[in-house]
Design a protein around this nucleic acid. Structure first.
Lengths: 225, 225
DNA sequence: TAATTTCTTCATAAATTCATTATAGCAAAT
DNA sequence: ATTTGCTATAATGAATTTATGAAGAAATTA
């Protein structure tokens, strides 16, 4: 069943939403503010976020933007009446729906249902994830890479490694982390294996090898945008 | 550009919405009640319907149900405050969004934008059921395949496999994914079964076998256009 | 039930890719 | 400037993966 993250600084709101959501059969996790939500999303996968706009530490919009940098999770915003400008703005940055406070939990649940259903069918087959960095195009769903418009042919490990790096762009990744995520938790080989594959990947990327940065004493990072 | 049908018995509302919609670049048609809307939808194709709930002759919900019997057009409902039961009910019968009267035209336009965008990506796949790739014709609804105009006779699994590949063309598909989607979740056989059927499918496709690409270490992909 | 078609598994050869090692090269610290 | 530790690269044998043909099992049809 779907896992929902509820982000609000008022414990009463969290509790009410949690109760209704759990009654509907969803798993629920709570966060007190945007900062906590971002951190939780970094380490976990949620299917939907219900988030207040006004919160201490990090507001709902900023948190939404931050989370969407790395993950594509639908968001329902809880906002006070009369924040129309924010509404227009919010749809732009990837908010899926708004519920105005004070809200009816029933209506909120109806909207949760709709948003989840919508994203289920969308994400199933045709969720395109395609990235462009200057002349480098990385089409993860199509498992294709173009260097200056020309298709690069790479080995499986090169694809897997590049896709993982791109998905986690601008995040430092240790060799251990890469081995665990790209090779699998059951791989107990040499650290240097990563180096070799980074080398081959760099060759495949030509001038765009520059996006793969060596973090001396640490690992690697895909640095772009 | 998108064509919008506005259904409301109050001419002032229709006019305001029309002006904002046309400013955004949409084509607009008006209807006075549900009956008229149903009749218009019977003869024309609209991309979105904005419809009031309360109308003489035929109310919004009934009209929505009636229209959805034959066409899959997204609907935004205009409703008065405090119609919560209706909201829950509406999501069930295929209403995409609600806007509460009195509404801000700006907000309405923001929601129009979201709903259209959502349905653009979703509706794309559902309509087309016949594909042509050079001399290869794939008629999914007719369950027929033509190679250079000549009907190819294939086994059930070959059809199912090809249709799934074509429906998800340019998307990398793992053997597990194919087994799950084409064979069913209750198939617990060998991975290599896919290979064998790919082989037979390729033979059936003759020169157009080229569209089925092997993704080493991963699976297969139908690559075309 | 028998005949026919289709499906799945298995074995093998060919092709590709991988992990490791050794060595050279580079960067930071002393 | 030298040392130390880390990274880049090339080479190679091992391992993995795919294509294919064949055969028995299963399902469908007559």
């Amino acid at each position: 069943m779907a896992h929902i993250l509820i982000v609000d600084d008022e414990v009463n709101i969290r509790t009410v939403v949690r109760e209704y959501a759990e009654f509907e059969g969803y798993d629920v996790t709570e966060a007190e503010n945007g900062m906590e939500a971002v951190s939780l999303c970094h380490d976990n996968d949620y299917d939907l976020i219900i988030m207040d706009v006004m919160m201490p530490r990090l507001d709902g919009y900023s948190a939404c933007k931050e989370i969407h940098k790395t993950k594509n999770i639908p968001v329902i915003m809880l906002s006070a009446r009369g924040e129309e400008y924010d509404k227009l703005f919010g749809f732009e940055i990837g908010v899926d729906d708004y519920v105005v406070k004070p809200f009816s939990p029933k209506e909120l649940m109806a909207r949760v249902k709709v948003v989840l259903k919508r994203n289920k069918t969308a994400g199933d087959a045709n969720q395109m994830d395609r990235y462009t960095f200057e002349g480098l195009e990385v089409d993860i769903s199509g498992r294709e890479v173009y260097v200056d418009g020309k298709k690069a042919s790479m080995t499986p490990k090169e694809y897997d490694l590049l896709f993982y790096l791109v998905r986690n762009k601008n995040i430092a990744l240790s060799r251990d982390k890469l081995l665990e995520e790209v090779w699998g938790y059951d791989f107990f080989g040499d650290d240097r294996t990563v180096d070799t594959h980074i080398k081959m990947l760099r060759n495949s990327l030509g001038e765009y090898r520059k996006f793969i940065v060596t973090l001396r004493g640490m690992g690697y990072k895909f640095e772009a945008q």
